[in-house]
Amino acid sequence: MPTASVSVIPRVLVVLVPALVGAGGLLTASTADRGSVLFYVATFFTAAVYVLAWWFEGRGRESFSRTAWGRDLARGAALGLIFLAVFALGALVVRPFPVLADPVVSLLENVRQGALWLTVLTTAVNGVAEELFFRDVVPRNITGRPSVVAVCSVGLYTAVTIAMGVPLLVFAAVIIGGATYFEARSTRRLFSPIALHLVWSLGMLVVLPPLMGS
Rank of each mutant, 00 (worst) to 15 (best):
P2S: 08
S5G: 11
V6L: 15
S7P: 00
S7G: 07
P10Q: 07
P10W: 07
L13M: 11
V14M: 12
V14P: 01
V15R: 06
V15A: 04
V15H: 07
P18V: 00
V21R: 03
V21K: 00
G25H: 04
G25E: 04
G25W: 00
T28D: 09
T28M: 13
T31A: 13
A32I: 06
R34W: 06
G35A: 12
V37F: 13
V37K: 10
Y40A: 09
F45R: 01
A48Q: 06
V49G: 02
V49F: 05
V51T: 10
V51D: 04
V51K: 05
L52H: 01
L52A: 15
W54S: 05
W55F: 13
G58T: 08
G58Q: 12
R59Y: 10
R61Q: 15
R61W: 08
S63E: 09
S63N: 12
T67D: 15
G70A: 04
R71C: 01
L73Q: 05
A74R: 15
A74F: 08
L79K: 00
F83Y: 11
V86Y: 12
G90T: 06
L92C: 13
V94A: 10
V94Y: 13
P96L: 07
F97C: 07
P98D: 15
V99G: 09
V104H: 03
S106F: 08
L108S: 07
E109V: 01
N110K: 05
R112S: 15
R112D: 14
Q113A: 11
G114L: 03
L116W: 14
L116G: 02
W117K: 01
W117D: 06
V120F: 14
A124Y: 05
V125T: 05
V125N: 00
V128R: 13
A129N: 01
E130G: 15
E131G: 05
F133L: 04
R135A: 03
R135C: 05
D136M: 09
V137A: 08
P139Y: 07
P139G: 06
R140M: 14
N141I: 05
G144V: 10
R145F: 08
P146G: 12
S147H: 15
A150Q: 06
V151E: 06
V151N: 05
V154F: 02
V154E: 03
L156N: 02
T158D: 06
A159E: 02
P167F: 02
L169N: 09
L169S: 11
V170I: 13
V170K: 00
F171V: 14
A173P: 03
V174P: 01
I175T: 11
I175V: 15
G178V: 10
A179E: 07
Y181W: 15
F182I: 08
E183P: 00
E183C: 04
R185G: 05
R185L: 03
R185H: 11
R185Q: 10
S186T: 11
T187Y: 13
T187K: 11
R189Q: 12
L190Y: 00
P193G: 13
L196I: 00
H197N: 15
L198V: 10
L198E: 11
V199S: 03
W200V: 04
L202F: 06
M204I: 14
V206P: 03
G213S: 12
